[in-house]
């Protein structure tokens, strides 16, 4: 139906032109490489920072109330703010303050905004994992003399992470696409290069180039997630029998 439409050749020229595919590929690929580097740095920081947030949120007792309150406020607030606003605020706003010693780099602040935003979401994923670990595990750990933090660190969290790996990898894929949002700061990443090519030639094929590159990363990640979950499930079954 799509291919026999009389407007198909025009649409095809607009979206799937081999000439424009080749023409836009080098710039888009160069931008995409920047995406990957930003993604890797951001992901490592997110995983670490979010875990700290989730652990603080899981601490019990009145003594930790102020810490818990700060983390809950942070998560609620950041998850409610559009990520684009965070990027603009940090990328343009902070350097404009002209404070000495504060970096003005767009990539630095772009990645910082992503880390701040994604950590809030990822902390909730961790928390779901922590709460999915049976209460008896915590009680046992405490009863053998571990402190709250030790119990979390050595008993709860290792089990918790295992439970939420698919959800974490889901976040990977999502972040990999959202890294492109730093384009608003003038950074020429992959999708932006596709944008520039489109604005110059009125041809959308450059976006297809970007999509193919993104798929080359996200499809293997998705397959890996499935494979890992499956392996984990089988191992546990093997242990229980």
């Amino acid at each position: 139906m799509v291919l026999t439409s009389e407007a198909w050749p025009a649409v095809q020229r607009q979206f799937f032109s081999w000439f424009h595919f080749k023409e836009s590929f080098p710039d888009v690929a160069r931008g995409f490489w920047l995406d990957i580097r930003m993604f890797l740095v951001a992901e490592v920081l997110i995983l670490a920072f979010a875990l700290v947030l989730a652990m603080i949120r899981s601490l019990r007792g009145p003594a930790f109330f102020p810490l818990r309150a700060i983390v809950v406020t942070y998560i609620d607030l950041i998850r409610g703010v559009p990520i684009l606003l965070l990027i603009l605020l940090l990328g343009f706003g902070v350097p404009a303050l002209q404070l000495t010693g504060v970096p003005t780099s767009r990539i630095f602040w772009g990645v910082a905004a992503l880390v701040i935003s994604y950590s809030a979401y990822t902390a909730e994923v961790y928390r779901a994992g922590i709460e999915s670990v049976h209460e008896s595990q915590r009680m046992s750990a405490r009863s053998i003399g571990l402190t709250q933090v030790q119990a979390l660190r050595f008993v709860i969290v290792p089990q918790a992470i295992r439970n939420v790996i698919p959800a974490l990898l889901n976040g990977f894929v999502s972040l990999q696409k959202d890294v492109a949002l730093v384009f608003v700061l003038g950074v020429r990443e992959g999708l932006r290069e596709a944008d520039i090519y489109n604005a110059r030639t009125f041809n959308y094929t450059s976006y297809v180039v970007a999509a193919v590159l993104f798929l080359l990363i996200s499809v293997p990640v998705a397959r890996f997630t499935d494979w890992y979950t499956e392996r984990d499930r089988r191992r546990r079954q093997a242990m229980s029998t």
């Binding site: 003005t104 767009r106 700061l185």
Partner: peptide, 12 residues
């Protein structure tokens, strides 16, 4: 507008 913001932020 974004160009001016980048100019004020010292990025260009």
């Amino acid at each position: 507008v974004d160009l001016i913001a980048a100019l004020v932020a010292g990025q260009i």
